[in-house]
């Protein structure tokens, strides 16, 4: 579904300062119809990697291939649903206007009303279509963000920290949505530093530390029955990283 090979990216914060390497030769595969967690502490390079994957950042080196076909194209983009970390929405729009905007961005066409109703139900936001986004709580905004990602029935969902900043109820709702999508055999790739969530949701894991790949494979092999959090701590200890 997604193949990342040798991804390397460094940023220059100032003109004369040396470039800071954020990703180093990062390679991993995301298998179709599986849920893969992208794990790493804050600043490990998860968001940068996701931004490289989606073409927002140009990598210095490396190749990214989608659906076994090659680099990201417009057609491929219409099969992907994405939710960024801490998204900002045009809060003067109503939920339906917001979804219509994203419907039009993917080419418009008939059937919007039915589809909008389905996704709003799916993210547990029925009957809010005419409410302005400025009246939404953080959890509701996160769910409307997921609704826009699901709007075109994508084959592949990419979420960046979907549970970050949510209260326990909000997190449970997002987890339920991800589990629902999992049952529909959608490929899901999401990043999080909340490791407890990974145990419940993921089949596979990609673990990075300081921009380098630490682990890629089945969650069970990584957690070895002791939970992702414990295994992650052990790995960081082995790598000599201070907790």
């Amino acid at each position: 579904m997604l193949k990342v090979q040798g991804l390397t990216k460094a940023f220059k914060t100032q003109l004369l300062s040396p470039a800071q390497v954020v990703l180093t030769d990062l390679s991993f595969d995301i298998q179709g119809q599986r849920t893969t967690g992208f794990v790493g502490v804050n600043g490990a390079g998860k968001t940068t990697a996701l931004k490289c994957i989606l073409g927002f950042i140009h990598p210095d080196q490396g190749q990214i291939s989608f659906f076994d076909q090659g680099p990201l194209t417009s057609e491929m983009k219409s099969q992907i649903g994405y939710l960024p970390e801490r998204p900002y929405y045009y809060d003067f729009l109503t939920a339906l206007q917001f979804l219509k905007f994203h419907w039009d961005l993917t080419g418009g066409g008939a059937g919007f009303e039915q589809r909008a109703e389905i996704v709003l139900d799916r993210v547990n936001l029925p009957g809010v279509g005419k409410k302005a986004l400025r009246s939404f709580s953080k959890g509701m905004l996160q769910r409307i963000g997921i609704a826009q990602a699901l709007l075109r029935e994508p084959k592949f969902l990419i979420f960046d920290e979907p549970m970050s900043g949510l209260d326990p109820d909000g997190r449970i709702l997002i987890k339920e949505i991800i589990q629902d999508e999992k049952k529909r055999h959608t490929t899901i790739f999401f990043s999080s530093h909340l490791l407890g969530d990974m145990d419940e949701l993921c089949d596979n894991l990609v673990v990075i530390n300081q921009g380098k790949l630490v682990y890629q494979g089945a969650l069970q092999d990584f957690s070895k029955g002791q939970g992702v959090e414990k295994s992650f701590r052990d790995i960081r200890q082995q790598l000599g990283v201070r907790q």
Binding site: L54, F56, P84, Q148
Partner: peptide, 9 residues
């Protein structure tokens, strides 16, 4: 906001 838009086609 550009990320949500540019993730679309």
């Amino acid at each position: 906001t550009c990320l949500l838009v540019l993730a679309r086609p």
